[in-house]
Design a protein around this nucleic acid. Structure first.
Lengths: 240, 240
DNA sequence: CACACAAACTTGTATATACAAGTTTGTGTG
DNA sequence: CACACAAACTTGTATATACAAGTTTGTGTG
């Protein structure tokens, strides 16, 4: 609790939207009403509302008010920057993580480029399979710079690496760049996944950065074609 | 010009980043220095900087300053909410739009669902092929509610529909929900595109909304597998 | 009744101030 | 010299005020 006023108002309003107390199409209380409800200033309310707007939960209309949107329904993996565990919890489907590899490696040319490291640095390599409703759908290959993550265990990898990084190691994960494209599947894909007849996989490359803009993780997430789905929300900037 | 102070500062700083006057890894001037340069208040500067940060151009670090990121390099289509014409200009590759169909239709079941319209309403249907470097790569199927777009011509479709909608019709395009997935290619895909041996296409569904949260356009964009690439930037929210 | 228009609402922008909480710099003590 | 620590910077949060610019409501005039 405490800590941050506008974030806690954001969370409170968000949970009211998710619980359906504020329904899609409905107006939420005006800024001035919220000022009274939360006993705070209008600027603080506006910070919370602007966050909701950026994330696609409400639409603010000048002179009228803010209405709840319903475009924000989740489908499949990775909307925004959340971990597989957080996602699995939201989806509510039976899912399981299998740790196939966990080892310390020296970077090859590809990794040196992706992780911005020299040949002498140590890298954690984690290979995990995500099983959803009994099928091996996603192959996750994570690479962490040992400088930031001195220790890892199979147990941690099976639960949630992000939880460990943020709660135990106190790393502040801040932002990520993602790339999506389609690639022919490799021997490794065929070995670890239930690929059926598909000849291609959807590849999601993830570059994850800390608070101070240092790159600490590179992830390649390889999805079976038919199970891949990504949902995005975007606002248009008008320049005038 | 004029109009909006913090947006014009945002644009000015953005162009300095894109031109390389502020280089990746470099610190930009502090908020107080920018206050003096632009002769404005700190809150106005902060609005501009927060926009840059949300869009992935800078990283703000408490106590230190703001540094320029280089994660924002464009790759292929549709990062954020921009039109094909705007994108083609940024990419600088020879590209061309071919209008294959332009007609007024009544919605079928699928369209009724996607566009939230009744069977009696009129819908503009536009089918366009995007040719890049001589190859027919993307099939765009756009559907506009006639209520919002009374008139369309082949000429407008070949240039930029968005430019027409925003400049001529004064529609205020505000936000969009996108869905990505992979699908088996159809007869239509094979007819209009150079599909080579590929058996699947990447489908991008786009629901585009106006200022007042009314849905006015549904688009299905079908991309040849090997040419599809999407780049995304995401920030993690920390709740505390 | 029809209509104009003021009044009361809504959100948007700009400014100013105060203090909290990080990081850097430099002074001065031992 | 090494070190502690204050001073001067940085960004982050919270509050208050003023006015602009939309929309809705309701009053009152003709």
């Amino acid at each position: 609790m405490s800590e941050n006023k506008y974030l806690s108002i954001y969370n409170d309003l968000l949970s009211k939207i998710e619980k359906g107390i504020f329904k899609p199409g409905m107006k939420i209380p005006s800024e001035n009403q919220l000022v009274e409800q939360y006993e705070t200033s209008r600027e603080t309310i506006r910070k919370a509302l602007n966050l909701l707007s950026e994330h696609g939960y409400i639409q603010k209309i000048k002179g009228k008010g803010s209405i709840v949107l319903d475009v924000r329904k989740f489908d499949f993996p990775i909307s925004g920057l959340i971990s597989f565990k957080e996602l699995a919890q939201k989806l509510g489907k039976p899912s399981r993580t299998i740790v196939e590899q966990l080892e310390m490696v020296k970077p090859d040319e590809v990794l040196k480029k992706h992780l911005h490291v020299t040949a002498r640095e140590d890298i954690w390599k984690v290979v995990r399979v995500r099983e959803i409703e009994g099928e091996r759908i996603i192959l996750d290959k994570d690479f962490f710079n040992k400088k930031f993550v001195p220790f890892l265990s199979k147990d941690i990898c099976a639960r949630s690496i992000y939880e460990y990084l943020e709660k135990e190691l106190q790393l502040k994960i801040s932002f990520a760049k993602k790339e999506f494209f389609v690639e022919e599947c490799t021997e490794e894909d065929r070995m670890y996944l239930n690929l059926k007849q598909y000849t291609h996989v959807v590849v999601v490359r993830n570059y994850v950065y800390l608070d101070d803009a240092s790159l600490f993780q590179y992830t390649e997430s390889r999805h079976r074609l038919d199970k891949f789905r990504f949902v995005d929300f975007a606002r248009r900037i008008h320049l005038h």
